[in-house]
Write a protein that binds this DNA or RNA. Structure first.
Lengths: 144, 144
DNA sequence: CATTGTCAGTTCCTTGAGGGAACCCAGTCG
DNA sequence: CGACTGGGTTCCCTCAAGGAACTGACAATG
């Protein structure tokens, strides 16, 4: 389908995938660690990891004889952006009275902050209300 | 689970949900329109729409006698941010030679641009590499 | 006013993917 | 040399997704 949302969902749309990526991002990189932290079935975890490696989001490394760990590739590191936007939305709308389960300290300013979306061209805020959606070169059907 | 990613995935993690939201965002708001555009099963679409309405991401309106349409709530409009980040990643890594299927024109500057992530505090770029992850007030288990 | 069409679903059946538990093999620690 | 750990695979079983057909209210049409 000529739709970048569908294509992205095809790579990481399965419900466990973002959680697997988050774990790798925060340093939970080994099979059993990930399995125990998430409570995911071993079978499904093995499938997901193969899929994510095959799609070049993760890479599999042998850190000792027959001992493997997973690491984010460049593609994978850019997916962390997506996770941070998910976290922001979940924090804002679903955290309830307990408040957010995690906080981010930004290296540049040292503050506890969150992500916001801005325009790559002018640097001003950019949301769904601030754009026109136009067909691009990769369009096939007359839909976004 | 005390994890904003898991909570967000619980609401919109099912593979069709982001595509449904995108359709509503671009003006494809009626049951049959959405079903035909996506090729989703009517049964699953009915379930998804109920779920999204129940989670206050969409609202259901009667625009004529027994004719309904769906619209984004405020929660839903903020989820469009997530879609735009997905689009950006898909455009960058999965579009191939054909180029992106859609383009965004930013109202503020008029340019064809894309979203980037910045810090809510200082306005500088903010990615996964630029932050420390700390436990927040809503933490239960010792994990992000 | 019977017929056709549209919209918004619901019902029923079948198949495939996810979960659980158990098993397996290589290395290594005591 | 036995037990343990890491990193999976195999088997079975259930549950949810897909497809196709049916329903029921309203609107326009001949």
């Amino acid at each position: 389908m000529a739709c970048s949302i569908a294509r992205t969902m095809d790579v990481i749309g399965e419900p466990w995938s973002p959680l697997v990526l988050r774990n790798v991002y925060v340093g939970i990189t080994r099979f059993d660690q990930i399995q125990q932290q998430l409570g995911i079935s071993r079978k499904v975890l093995a499938e997901r990891l193969r899929w994510l490696v095959g799609n070049e989001v993760l890479e599999r490394r042998e850190y000792a004889a027959n001992r493997h760990e997973y690491a984010l590739t460049e593609r994978g590191r850019e997916l962390v952006d997506l996770l941070m936007v998910m976290v922001r939305w979940g924090d804002k709308w679903l955290a309830g009275d307990a408040g957010p389960p995690v906080l981010y300290r930004h290296h540049t300013c040292g503050g506890i902050t969150h992500v916001t979306l801005t325009c790559s061209g002018c640097g001003n805020p950019m949301s769904g209300d601030d754009v026109d959606v136009l067909p691009g070169p990769g369009t096939t059907a007359p839909h976004p």
